[in-house]
Structure formats: structure tokens, C-alpha cells
Write a protein that binds this DNA or RNA. Sequence first.
DNA 1: ATTTTGACGCT
DNA 2: AGCGTCAAA
Length: 625
Amino acid sequence: MKSNTGHRNDQGRVAEEGEEVCGEQLGAMENARKRCQAPSTSKSLMATEDDPYKIDPLIALIDMDCFYVQVELRLEPEWRGKPAIVVQYKTRHKGGGIIALSYEARERGVKRFHHADDAREVCPEVKVFVVPELHGKADLTRYRDAGAEVIRVMKKHFHCVERASVDEAFVDLTKEVKQLLPRYLSKELKLTPEALGSTCIAESHSVEAWLDQLYLKLEEDPEAFVASSVQLNNFALAIGAVLVNDLRQDIINVTEFHCSGGISYSKTLSKLACGLNKPRKQTVLPGNAVGPLFNKTNIIDVRMLGGKLGRSIIENLCISTMGELCKVEVPKLRQYFSEETARWLASLAVGIDNEPVQERDLPKSIGCSKNFLGKEALSTREQVKKWMEHFVSELSVRLKKDQAENNRSASLLTVSITYVKDPFKIKSGQSCSRCAPMTSYDNEAMVYDAFMVADRLLTSLGYRNGRYHYAVINLGISASKMRDGGFTASRIDSYFRGQKKKEVDDSQIFPGNKYSELKVKGRDASKIQLGKAKEVRERKGSITKYLNQASPRKDAQGGQASHHQQQKVRTEHMESKSDTETRLGQLLQATRSQRMGKVRRLFPARFTDEGGTRLGGRQRRRVPQ
DNA sequence: ATTTTGACGCT
DNA sequence: AGCGTCAAA
């Protein structure tokens, strides 16, 4: 039985018009290259005389296993091997909420979304670590710093590393693997199970068998092997697995932290692969395993489909797996989603996301926030100011460290507020944010600016007898728009030039303060009717804006929530479409390159049976030009 | 009533 | 500029 049965059976007829497709594709790739800071991905698709091997992009995701727990266990190693959890705010609701749990704790029935008290009930011996508190709030510095340690090791191995969160990062392995390819093909280096270490192969029981199959094909006909993108891609995948295994071992050596990894052709596939064998394992996801895997993958479990969009796919199309989504034709998708969304989904349904790995190992913003629920809700100026001071105390330390270590300074200070009428009858609060230029890391200046924007907003919503009419249930500040270097005179000058006279009386709350002549930027909330604006959005905006405007189908939405689109950029560098009939044809144009004037691939070879371990089918498909 | 982050797209 | 969505511990 074929390993990809049921997955894309319409691949027979694909693109046929040659030059046109090539032309479009080169244009699309050019766009992709411009956006990608590390152009290795698109370059890798180009076969040249110097570089005869053409492989697909190779992307890994490294994800630390129950990271916060590991960070705590490194500090208190005596708890290693025992069930352990990390909770926030021990003294609050039910002993604090779990934000990380060890695999030992999971085995004993502790669940995410449990609280510390629940965990102790099912597992009395569980070790409970509590997130440090500083300035009256949870302080995650310890985990951020540990995450930075890991990123440093990764940067030592690879140029193109994208910090995706505090504990995970994507790596573009393409360039490194390409460089090694000739040495492995020539047998100077050998792919062995030992070299692959803790590697698993998705949809395969044995790494050994998978490697054996690979080498069997190579021995059989070396020329055919290097000419077959299926074989070459599998081979590259195996090399990638070696590199990632080495990286993971180095991370252990340097940081003591264990992690899992996924190695495949896109962020989406790598992420999915990474989750297949946790903890302390890495998973290779070859092209021919994507179909079978997708047949049992819930749509919700795929990156970017875990929210409203995924739910609306499931409801509208009455399907639940990626395999089913793959069989839905683009026109059908267009009934429910915009043209761009439809195409993006069609790509995603075969594992293609066209998202380059951005070379970025530092966060783009630094912030802190806190919820104030129920009776904790803030309703006086003094309370808000006090918390701004707390936030700034934490933030300024983090900002100054960032400035010293990374030679950059934030230029924008943003205050975020969620407020409600009655904090005891919370449905969903109104969220809003206001910003001010950031021209120094002076605590007093930051407190003043942050408080002023917050107070202006809240006061405009109603203020009487020392209380705001609305209660603040979430408050946060964040620094962003990082610029190289420190603060310069010109930046400060331009800030002062931009100031107008202040309009809010701050003489009592900031007696005699040195900023009293300044006024922060920002709109007057009283004039913009926040509540109403949001209401209008909910009524019409979010529904219509994602619909295909050309074919009105409002009924199909059934009042569903919005379908958030982050795919616009991505679809941009997919082909702009010729007249290919099948969806498959549309997909491959953007994702495959052709060797001009030589072999032209009909479809992404990695998704075919060729090279599958037990198929013994045809070697490769070619279309004579 | 998990909470605290962070990135990014849309308008 | 400000809001919403998605995601990770």
C-alpha cells in the first residue's frame, strides 16, 4: 500500500506552460529573497554550475522541553527526575496557575490548566516551583535569560536563527547542509544511526531502515540519485538531522537544557514534526510522510490554525484533519475565504507555508504587564501610578541590560490597558493602547509618560471623586521600535520639538515635576468613542474584511468570527497564478525552481512516492523539455 | 479566574 | 497609531 494514499491524488496534471511559469516563479522568488534577511533559502533552489545540487529549503525547529521546569531544575538539581511544576502566584487562586510541568508530572496525571492544588491532589509528591516575584508581579527574567543562553549556542552553529519565543527557535539549515552535501555524497562522511543520535523518522519505525534505503538508492545509481530531488532531499534531511543532533547535544553540554527538534521543509512541518516525539528527541519529517501524517493531524494542531481561522475551517467545511483540508479544492475554499486565504490554506494543506526563517535572535519589544481581576482592579490615579512605577522599575533594568548587551535603544513606549465597567461582572473588557516617544531610560521620565497616557485615557472615559468610571483589569507597558546605539541628542531634540502644552492637570500626582511642561503624544480618548468603535467592528468589520469581496457569501460565514490573516505577506511570494487548473499546480510554481532548459518538475517531488522506503517504484519523474 | 509575555497583520 | 489574532511557558 502506498504510503501517501489519499493524499493529493490529482497530481497527475499540473503545470504545463513552461517559460511562463519559470518567469513568474523567478519574480516570486525575487520577492521572497528581498524579504528574507538570509537569502540562503531561495538561493538554495537555484542550481548553478558551481552548485549542482538543488534541494528544498531545510528548516528546523528547536523547542525546549518544559522549559521553565528545566530552568528551575538546573537551580535545584536534587529534584531532577521527580514530578515538578512551575506556577505563578502561589498565594492566589488555588495555589497558583501552572505554566510548565515536567514529563514526570504529566505521567502522573497532572494537566496543564490545573492549578497547584489540583496537581497536589493527583500527585501529592509533586514539587512546586514558584515564579519569582518582584515589584509585586511575576518576574520572568530568569527564564528569558536562560532562553538567551540557548540562542547563543544556536548562533554558534547556524547563521540563520529566528527566536520564535522564549524557548523555541527556527533554524534555516539549507546553506550548511548544502555545503556538506558533496562530502556525504562522496562517502567522505557517512550518515550513521549514531550520527543521527536521538532522531526519529516520521511515519517510519526505524532510522536504520530509512538510512539503509537511502544508501541503497545511492549505491544503485549515484547519478540518478543526485538527479532525483526526492532522493537528494531525503539525503539533505538526514544531514540536517546530524547537524541538529549535534546542536542539541551542544545545548545540553553548555546549558544542561534538553530540547526536542523537528527537521523538515517549512516552519509548519518542522513545528509539527517537533511535537511528534517529545521530549529529548528530534523528528525528521520527509516529504513522503507528510500525506500520511496529515491524514491524522487535526487542523487545530497546525501552526497558525490553532485559533479562530482553524475553527472556522472546521465549521465551514465540516472537516477536522489536514488530510481532508488537502482534498478541498481552491474554489471551494474561496467560498468561505478570500482569494489569498484560500491559496494560503491550499499551500498549508500540503505543508508549504513559504515563510522564510528570519535571522533574528533578539526580541523586538520588551514589556511587562499584569492582570488585576475582581477586587484587585485598579480604579484610582494613585493605583495606576503606583503600578506604572513598578512596571518601570522592572522595565528599565531590562532595557538598560538590553542596551548594554545589544547596543540598541527603544524609541517607543506603549501603554496597554484593559478596562471594564464592573470588575466583578467581567465579560470581556475593552482593550486599548497609547504610545509616547521614548528618549531615555530615565525611570521618572518613563513613569511620567506612561502614567500620563494612561491617565489621559482613563480620565477621558470618566472620572469623579478620585475614581475612574472604569476599572482597569489589565495594565502593561512595553518598549519597542529598537534603534541601533544609545540615545542621541537629535532624538531627544526631536522629541521636545514635538511636544505641545499639557492638557491634563498632573500637579497633584506629580508635584513639581520636571516634565510638567511636556505633553505626551496621543489622542484624546473622549473623542474617539472606543466602545462604539469596537462594537461596530464586531458587528460588521471583522466578518466582511476577510471575505472574498468578489463573491459575496456572507451567509456562509454564519456570523462566524473573523479569520485572521497573517498570510498576506506569505502569499505574496507565491506565484501570482497563471492558468493552472489544479491547486497542486498553483502550489508548486512558487515552491519549486526549475533548472532552466533542463529538467522541469511537475510537482514537488518530495511529496511523491518516489524514494519512499518500501515502495520500489519509479526512480523519478521527468518531463523532457 | 491562568498569567505574562511576544510577533505581526489589518485598517 | 491602535486594535485584534495567534502562540508559548
